[in-house]
Design a protein around this nucleic acid. Sequence first.
DNA 1: TTGAAAGCGTTACCAT
DNA 2: ATGGTAACGCTTTCAA
Lengths: 333, 333
Amino acid sequence: MAVTIKDVARLAEVSISTVSRVINDSKPVSPEVRKKVLKIIEEIGYKPNEIARSLVTKKSFLIGVIISDIGHSYVAEMVRGIEEIGKMYNYDILLCSSYGDTIAQKKYIQLLNSKQVAGIVIIGEQLIKEVEADIKTLEIPFVYLSRNSISKGTPSVQVDNYEASYEMTNYLLSLGHRNIAFIGDIKEENTMELQKLNGYKDALYEYEDAKENVIKVKDSSYEKGYNAGVELLKKIGDVTAVICSKDEIAVGLINYLNDNNIVVPDDISVTGFGDYKIASLIRPKLTTIKEPFYDIGAVAIRRIIKEIKGEKSQDEIIKLPFQIQKRGSCKKL
Amino acid sequence: MAVTIKDVARLAEVSISTVSRVINDSKPVSPEVRKKVLKIIEEIGYKPNEIARSLVTKKSFLIGVIISDIGHSYVAEMVRGIEEIGKMYNYDILLCSSYGDTIAQKKYIQLLNSKQVAGIVIIGEQLIKEVEADIKTLEIPFVYLSRNSISKGTPSVQVDNYEASYEMTNYLLSLGHRNIAFIGDIKEENTMELQKLNGYKDALYEYEDAKENVIKVKDSSYEKGYNAGVELLKKIGDVTAVICSKDEIAVGLINYLNDNNIVVPDDISVTGFGDYKIASLIRPKLTTIKEPFYDIGAVAIRRIIKEIKGEKSQDEIIKLPFQIQKRGSCKKL
DNA sequence: TTGAAAGCGTTACCAT
DNA sequence: ATGGTAACGCTTTCAA
C-alpha cells in the first residue's frame, strides 16, 4: 500500500487538512508547519493520489484527444503540440483513435466523460453533427481540429486556406504559369477544400490568359494523387503546373509523373498543401504550404485550458499564419 | 450533476449494492431485478464514474505509454497497436512524450503511478537503468519497446535483428554483390545495431570474395544518412550495395546519391530496415526489412493485460517475424 | 438474493 | 492557523 495523506499527517503530527493545504497551497499554513510537512513528504516519498483528488474535485487533469489516426504525420504533429503544452499545465493526454468511425467517436466521448476529462480535442477529417451535439451536452471545453472540414459554430484552429491557396496560385502565376490545374478532394461539405479551390480560382481570375482546370479526387490519399495523374496526362503540354490540395496528393502525383517519365519540375511544376514530413524527403522536394500543425495543437490546448479556468474564448475560429515553402518541385516557365 | 449509482438505485427501487452487482456482474442478481435496473440505466443514460471506481478498486483501466516522440512513424505504429488492442479490453492510453529525456521519463513514471495505471509501455531509443529500476519498484506490469536498444532482463517485443540483417545481406549476395557496405548507428550499448552488424558480417563471412565495409553514424537520422554518403563516395566503384541499419539512413543516403547524380539502383543498391511509411513513397522504392511495429505494440499490450490478469508471461523477449520487402532500390549486379 | 455500511484518499466547509 | 468531518461515487464485506 502506497503512503497516503494520513501517513504524512501522522508523521508530521498535524491533521490531514493541514497536509492538504500544504500540497495545494490552498490556505495559509505557518512556515514551520509547512516545512515539517514538506520534509515528511520528501522523506517518505508521498505522492497525492490523483484518483482520489479527481473524485472530489471532479477534475482530472486529463485532456481527451479523439483522433482519426495517429499514423498521419499531421495528426501526430498536432498531438505533439497538444501534449507538450498540456504538460506545461499538468494536463495529460488520453488518446483515442476513431479511424473516422462515428460510433467509435460517440463511444469515446462518453468514455472521456466518465473519466471526467477536463477538455476534449477532436482531430478528424469531418465532424459529424451528431458527435458535435453529444459533446456539447457535456459542457466540457472542446476544440475541433481538421485539415479538411469546417464546422460552423465550433471552436477550431486552422490556417486561412483561401488565402494560402490564393497566394500559392499567385506564386505559380508569378513564375509564368498560366495553365495551372487544381487537384482537390472537393465535396460539398469539405469547406476547406472549397476554400482552397476558391483561392485558386480568384487568383486565376485576375489573369485573362489563365486557364482553369479542376480535377476532383474522392479523398486525400497518396493513391488518389497517383491516379489523378492519369487524368492530368490527358491535359499535359497544356497544363504546366498543378496545385494539389494536400501533400499526399502531390506526392502521389509526382510519383505517377516520375513513373511515366515526366520530369518534375522541368515538364510540370507541382505544389502541395501541409508540408508533411515527406515533403522535404522526396525528390524533387515539394513546394508547399507549411501549415503549423504543432502550433495548431498548441493553440487548441491553450484555448481549452483558458476555458477550464473560466475565461471564455473570443473567436470561434482562430487563424494561424501559414508559409509558402519554396522548394524544387516548381520552376519558372 | 451527472446521474450516479444512487439515482439508478432510487429509481429502480433497489439498493446501490444491487446496482453495483448488476453493472459488474459480480454477484448473482435475480433476473427481474437485473432487468429493472438495466432498464433504468438505459433510460437515464447512467455511466459509472470511472474515477470513483478506480479509487476503490485501485485499478484505472489506463495504460501509460511513455514514448520518445510520436513524430516517428514507427512509434505512431506501435502506439496504434497498443491502443487498438488495449481498447478491446477496455484499456485507455495515457500518452507521455519524453523526447528521450531521462528526467521526464522518471517524472512520468511517478505520474502514471499516481494515476494508478494498470500497466506501462516505454518506447524509446534507449532504456536507462535508473528508469528501469524506478519502474520495477512500482510493480506495475511493463514492457519496453525499441527499434534500437535491448535491455537485458526487461520484457520486450522485437524482431530478430541478427537474422533479418543476415538474410538481407544474403539477399544482396544472391544478387551478385560482393562489396557490400553497412551503415549503422553502432555504439556499445546499441545492441540491436550490433546484432544487425553481426548478421551482416556473418553472412559475408561465408563468401571468400566478399568485402566488409562498415560506416558508423552517430544516430539514426535522415541527415546522418545523407552525410554518410560523403564517406561512402570515397569507396564507390568499389562498393556496389549498401545495407543501412534504418530506413531513415537509407532515405538520406539515397537522397545524397541522387543529389550527386549517382543512380540507385543502377550504380549502387541500397537497403533499409523498418519499412517506415516513406520506404514505399520515395523513388526508387526502398528494399527493406519490414518490422511489424503495429504487431509489436499489439503483442506488448496483450502481454501486459495478461500480466494484469495474473498470468505471468513466459519469455523476457518475444520475437516477431519480419519480412524482406523487395523493391526497386536493389538490382542484380 | 438483497441491503447497510465501511472505506478508498482526497478536498473543502465549518468550527475553533 | 489548524483540526474535525462530510462528501465525492463507487465496491465490497458483513448480515439478514
